[in-house]
Design a protein around this nucleic acid. Sequence first.
DNA 1: TGACTGACTAGATTCGTAATCTGGTCAACA
DNA 2: TGTTGACCAGATTACGAATCTAGTCAGTCA
Lengths: 199, 199
Amino acid sequence: MSTESTSAPDARLIASAEAQFRRFGFKRTTVDDITSEAGTGKGSLYLHFESKQAVYLAVVEASLERFVNSASQLLDGPGSVPERLRSLVELTIRHYGEDELLHASLFGKTGLVDGDVARMAADVQRTGIRSLLRALLAIGQREGSVRTDLDVDAAAAVLFEIGWAVVRAALEGDSQVSLDQALTTLNQIVGLGLLPRSQ
Amino acid sequence: MSTESTSAPDARLIASAEAQFRRFGFKRTTVDDITSEAGTGKGSLYLHFESKQAVYLAVVEASLERFVNSASQLLDGPGSVPERLRSLVELTIRHYGEDELLHASLFGKTGLVDGDVARMAADVQRTGIRSLLRALLAIGQREGSVRTDLDVDAAAAVLFEIGWAVVRAALEGDSQVSLDQALTTLNQIVGLGLLPRSQ
DNA sequence: TGACTGACTAGATTCGTAATCTGGTCAACA
DNA sequence: TGTTGACCAGATTACGAATCTAGTCAGTCA
């Protein structure tokens, strides 16, 4: 019952759940843990959430939202679209390197989360980040710094996969090339590929 | 003892092991299975190989070599480097879609192979395919169809990650965009990124 | 003599099952 | 009417016994 009872019950539940999930992972956190820490009865959790999985997804969504917010600032900032993409990749590596919860959910690596839940959580993240990219590309096309003959949806999907690969390689450390070199090269390749042909 | 005893013992062992691994996976295939199928005593396997893992890696290497051979023909063929890259991705998807052994080893998805072995087998494949890409890029630079300011090693690593992501997305089917659209977009982005600036 | 074998072993894995745990429910409660 | 926590079925764990198997090496044979 350490979480204060000042805020709304569902916020308390999320906060409590987040703390527990971060410490123990999805499997080893019990619904009893969450509710007693939040200071509610067990049944109350089911007034606000469909299931334990739903609580987990809500936590991931909240955490992702914070990441997307800081990423949005960056993407609205100055610099060419390729430059901002590079910054986004760097930010993602930093953020995901620190946020074990998002990391585990997206890559499913550790024993913190199991199959189904991890897949759903990964979907949430993929969708969120992809729409971030879509927005950036659309802005770039309007500004004239991105080729207009690119299909924004497809390009966002491909860029996500590319960026994801680099982030994964950086975080898992299974790349043979230094991160900086990879980012520079990626920027060279993707950068010129996004520029309008007229240039 | 169904494998003919005409060929050399180590070739017989590899052939027998490959058949067993394909059918049952690494874990459920026993050394006894392999040697009795190859018509040798159990101890003989250890005259030719360090361990069961080593046999598995040899099988993966042999299978990869066949893939690399058909890929090499393609990469030596006509077309711009980006075009040939696209063909390579398509070939990879086709090949890995059929070859459960390579697929399982690279993506570690199914229960056919477990952690350590899968990682080593994946390394073998990464190394092989990456040097394929390195060669293609070097040729492209000599031919003038690839920018010479690209670091070939880094570009090969990045292209591998990019291609890998697309192949994985295609095989796992977790992409929101059709494969063809993804390939076309990838080609647009990567293609223009590889072309010499003079163009 | 040296290539080859297969019985053997230690350690891992599987199996059976009893004990425990936990997500989700719902009758009782305030 | 909103909240609770005792309760339940099914999942998970614990654990000792039985089984399996990667790797070895003393012995066989050509």
